[in-house]
């Protein structure tokens, strides 16, 4: 019961009316430390500034080591696979439309519509993004009005000038955005045949987020972990710890004072000074012993 209470406290650390987000601990997946003499598992976590300006810089890394009592195969989630964070785009003119879906984090894609001269509407949504991800997504847009032979005609929009990437835009998950792009005849290249739009998903891929488990026990002291950031280090045999070293790389070492083989996992999250998640990179395993 005590453990459940602790986990709930961690899961909903800042759940409250005045705070904008729910903290969720990212999970290392199940790891196994071998009984080899001197064995150390060695990890790297990178904390960066949030894309959401209201959240800002990382203040500290929150970390909790949990020894597994059960089978090491009970969790199969792949940490290296980012959760879906994507945009869908639709280009519309009169009764014509063109769609492109699943522009995932850190990728881009292009759609075009043959609609001649006139006003086109570009719609963007986040349908398909994992609903547990609360941070906004980022994107930029570039467009060009073209004649039938691919030469540029005249294009304009409040979004940005033709053929120049827009400034960074943000879109909260579950929301939509719309822009109007006007294509017109050019004195040299003639009438517009089509509009080409490229959407760049600038979102930093979030690592997988797993709610803390209620089925595993706190450390029995078989394992210890050290969290290192800059010239600071903290040791834990299971207690939740914060290491304050701002944005940057944090290293984690897991080892056993008794050289025991043990299955474990750990939860971690980069947080700002108000304990709101910033950007946490996918976990990088430097050494597996």
């Amino acid at each position: 019961m005590k453990k459940i209470t602790q986990n709930l406290a961690w899961s909903f650390l800042i759940l409250g009316g005045t705070l904008p987000q729910i903290v969720f601990g990212l999970d290392s997946e199940v790891q196994t430390l071998a009984a080899n003499t001197g064995a150390v598992d060695f990890f790297e976590i990178t904390c960066t500034k949030s894309n959401d300006k209201t959240i800002g810089n990382t203040d500290h890394l929150n970390f909790k080591l949990i020894e597994n009592n059960g089978s090491a195969q009970t969790q199969t989630l792949n940490q290296s696979v980012p959760q879906p964070q994507l945009f869908n785009a639709t280009l519309t003119r009169l009764k014509l439309n063109s769609k492109i879906a699943n522009i995932t984090a850190s990728t881009n894609n292009t759609l075009s519509l043959k609609g001649g001269n006139g006003a086109y509407t570009l719609g963007i949504d986040t349908l398909g993004t994992n609903s547990t991800i609360k941070t906004v997504q980022n994107y930029t847009i570039q467009y060009q009005c073209l004649n039938a032979t691919g030469q540029a005609t005249n294009g304009s929009s409040t979004l940005t000038k033709q053929n120049i990437p827009s400034t960074n835009k943000t879109l909260a998950n579950g929301k939509t955005a719309k822009y109007v792009i006007n294509c017109a005849k050019n004195a040299k290249s003639g009438n517009t045949d089509s509009l080409k739009v490229t959407l760049f998903n600038k979102t930093f891929a979030q690592p997988i987020a797993v709610p803390p488990s209620n089925t595993e026990v706190s450390s029995t002291g078989t394992l210890a972990a050290q969290v290192i950031g800059g010239i600071k280090v903290k040791n834990t045999v299971g207690a939740n710890i914060d290491l304050q070293n701002g944005n940057g790389i944090y290293n984690v070492m897991v080892n056993s004072p008794t050289n025991a083989a043990k299955s474990y996992h750990f939860e971690y999250s980069c947080l700002n000074s108000a304990n709101i998640p910033t950007q946490t990179s996918p976990l990088k395993k430097l050494q597996d012993k």
Partner: peptide
Amino acid sequence: TKAKNITSQG
């Protein structure tokens, strides 16, 4: 990227 552990009692 390498690490090793030693203990006072092992």
